[in-house]
Amino acid sequence: GTVHVGDKTYHFPTPDAAKKFAQEIAKKLNLQVTVKNGTWQVH
Results as ranks from 00 to 15, higher is better:
3 V>Q: 00
35 V>L: 15
3 V>K: 00
21 F>M: 03
43 H>M: 13
4 H>F: 12
38 G>A: 06
4 H>R: 14
3 V>T: 02
29 L>K: 04
3 V>H: 01
40 W>N: 03
19 K>T: 06
4 H>V: 15
2 T>Q: 08
27 K>M: 11
10 Y>W: 08
42 V>Y: 02
10 Y>L: 05
19 K>N: 09
10 Y>G: 00
25 I>A: 05
4 H>D: 05
8 K>D: 07
22 A>T: 02
30 N>G: 15
17 A>T: 06
12 F>V: 01
13 P>K: 12
5 V>G: 01
16 D>Q: 13
8 K>A: 09
4 H>W: 09
13 P>V: 08
22 A>S: 03
43 H>E: 11
31 L>R: 06
15 P>E: 13
29 L>Q: 05
7 D>S: 13
14 T>A: 05
2 T>R: 09
1 G>P: 09
13 P>N: 12
35 V>S: 09
33 V>G: 02
32 Q>S: 12
1 G>R: 10
2 T>K: 10
38 G>W: 05
37 N>C: 04
23 Q>T: 13
12 F>G: 00
9 T>W: 11
19 K>F: 12
24 E>I: 08
31 L>V: 14
19 K>M: 14
24 E>P: 00
7 D>G: 13
33 V>H: 03
6 G>V: 06
35 V>D: 09
4 H>P: 00
18 A>F: 02
8 K>Y: 10
4 H>E: 11
25 I>C: 07
42 V>W: 02
14 T>Q: 05
37 N>H: 06
13 P>T: 12
25 I>R: 03
10 Y>M: 04
37 N>E: 12
21 F>S: 01
9 T>H: 07
15 P>S: 12
11 H>A: 06
4 H>C: 08
3 V>G: 01
40 W>Q: 02
39 T>I: 15
13 P>E: 13
34 T>Q: 06
23 Q>E: 15
13 P>W: 06
10 Y>I: 05
25 I>M: 10
38 G>S: 07
41 Q>S: 11
38 G>E: 07
18 A>G: 02
36 K>Y: 13
30 N>K: 06
26 A>W: 02
11 H>S: 08
18 A>E: 00
25 I>D: 00
40 W>R: 00
5 V>M: 09
8 K>T: 09
39 T>R: 09
7 D>N: 14
12 F>A: 01
31 L>G: 14
42 V>R: 01
11 H>N: 08
18 A>K: 00
10 Y>H: 04
43 H>S: 12
2 T>C: 04
43 H>Y: 13
6 G>T: 04
14 T>N: 10
38 G>Y: 07
6 G>C: 03
12 F>K: 00
1 G>D: 07
2 T>S: 09
38 G>L: 05
7 D>R: 13
21 F>G: 01
23 Q>R: 07
27 K>Q: 13
7 D>Y: 11
29 L>R: 04
26 A>E: 03
42 V>L: 08
33 V>P: 04
30 N>W: 04
37 N>W: 04
27 K>C: 06
40 W>V: 05
11 H>W: 13
22 A>D: 00
25 I>H: 04
39 T>P: 02
29 L>S: 05
10 Y>D: 00
29 L>D: 05
7 D>M: 11
20 K>T: 11
18 A>C: 02
37 N>F: 05
19 K>S: 12
20 K>Y: 10
16 D>G: 10
23 Q>H: 15
37 N>D: 15
28 K>H: 09
39 T>S: 13
17 A>S: 08
6 G>D: 06
18 A>D: 00
28 K>Q: 11
7 D>L: 12
35 V>G: 15
34 T>H: 06
7 D>F: 10
33 V>D: 01
28 K>D: 07
22 A>H: 00
25 I>P: 00
31 L>F: 07
33 V>L: 11
1 G>N: 14
31 L>M: 15
28 K>T: 08
37 N>A: 05
24 E>F: 14
24 E>H: 13
28 K>P: 04
16 D>T: 09
12 F>Q: 01
20 K>L: 12
12 F>H: 01
28 K>A: 12
26 A>F: 02
41 Q>A: 08
41 Q>Y: 15
8 K>P: 00
23 Q>F: 15
25 I>E: 05
12 F>P: 00
34 T>M: 06
21 F>E: 01
7 D>A: 11
32 Q>W: 07
33 V>S: 04
21 F>H: 02
31 L>T: 09
22 A>N: 00
20 K>H: 13
41 Q>T: 15
37 N>T: 04
17 A>V: 06
16 D>H: 10
11 H>D: 06
27 K>D: 12
31 L>I: 05
33 V>Y: 06
26 A>L: 02
1 G>C: 06
10 Y>S: 01
21 F>W: 10
22 A>E: 00
1 G>E: 06
32 Q>Y: 07
21 F>Y: 07
17 A>N: 04
32 Q>H: 13
36 K>V: 15
36 K>Q: 14
41 Q>K: 07
10 Y>F: 11
25 I>W: 06
34 T>F: 08
16 D>A: 13
19 K>D: 09
5 V>Y: 11
1 G>W: 14
41 Q>E: 15
39 T>A: 15
27 K>S: 11
14 T>C: 05
20 K>E: 14
34 T>P: 01
11 H>Y: 14
1 G>Q: 10
20 K>C: 04
26 A>Y: 02
24 E>T: 11
25 I>L: 13
40 W>C: 04
19 K>I: 07
32 Q>I: 14
26 A>T: 03
39 T>H: 15
23 Q>M: 15
7 D>Q: 11
11 H>Q: 08
31 L>A: 15
11 H>M: 08
40 W>H: 04
2 T>M: 09
15 P>Q: 15
3 V>Y: 00
4 H>I: 15
30 N>Q: 08
32 Q>C: 09
37 N>S: 05
7 D>T: 13
18 A>M: 01
14 T>G: 05
22 A>V: 05
3 V>N: 00
9 T>E: 08
16 D>K: 08
39 T>N: 11
9 T>D: 05
37 N>I: 03
17 A>I: 08
32 Q>F: 09
4 H>N: 11
36 K>P: 01
38 G>K: 04
